[in-house]
Amino acid sequence: MLKFFRVALQVCYLYLFALLGNILVKWLHLPISGSIIGLFIVLALLHFKVLKLSAVELGAGFLMSEMLLFFIPSAVAIIQYKDEIIQHGSQFLIVILLSTITVMIVTGLVAQFSIRRLANKKGEIGK
């Protein structure tokens, strides 16, 4: 029960940082979303030891592990677009499928190739 309250409190903390981010975005007319600004604020506060890791770790862990739940309402929203989906659904799906596969293959291979090259270089220097 105690753990439940700690998680809930930490989720509130994180929410406050997101709200703070939203306010900054509005004031400064930033092109980024408030939650990403909030992420950088928390990162900075952790870095400068203003915020302790233990003050947000549990809440963040909970939110991240149940994140799929928060995507569900936006996925249900698809039913509002019946006409578009009946008309173009298969085209959308083909584009998204092929493009996502391409992006993942390219990103994964570029990263893997560069990591291995770096490892090799270091190996040679080691010799």
Binding site: G38, L39, L43, L46, L53, A60, L63, P73, A77
Partner: peptide
């Protein structure tokens, strides 16, 4: 109606905001 559903669903979608902020923790670690 979807809009009726979303009157509740919105609260769950909103939780994505603190979840994104939470990604600061693995980044920091």
């Amino acid at each position: 109606n979807y809009s009726d559903y979303d009157s509740g669903g919105r609260w769950l979608s909103n939780m994505l905001q603190p979840a994104v902020v939470g990604f600061a923790i693995p980044l920091y670690k």
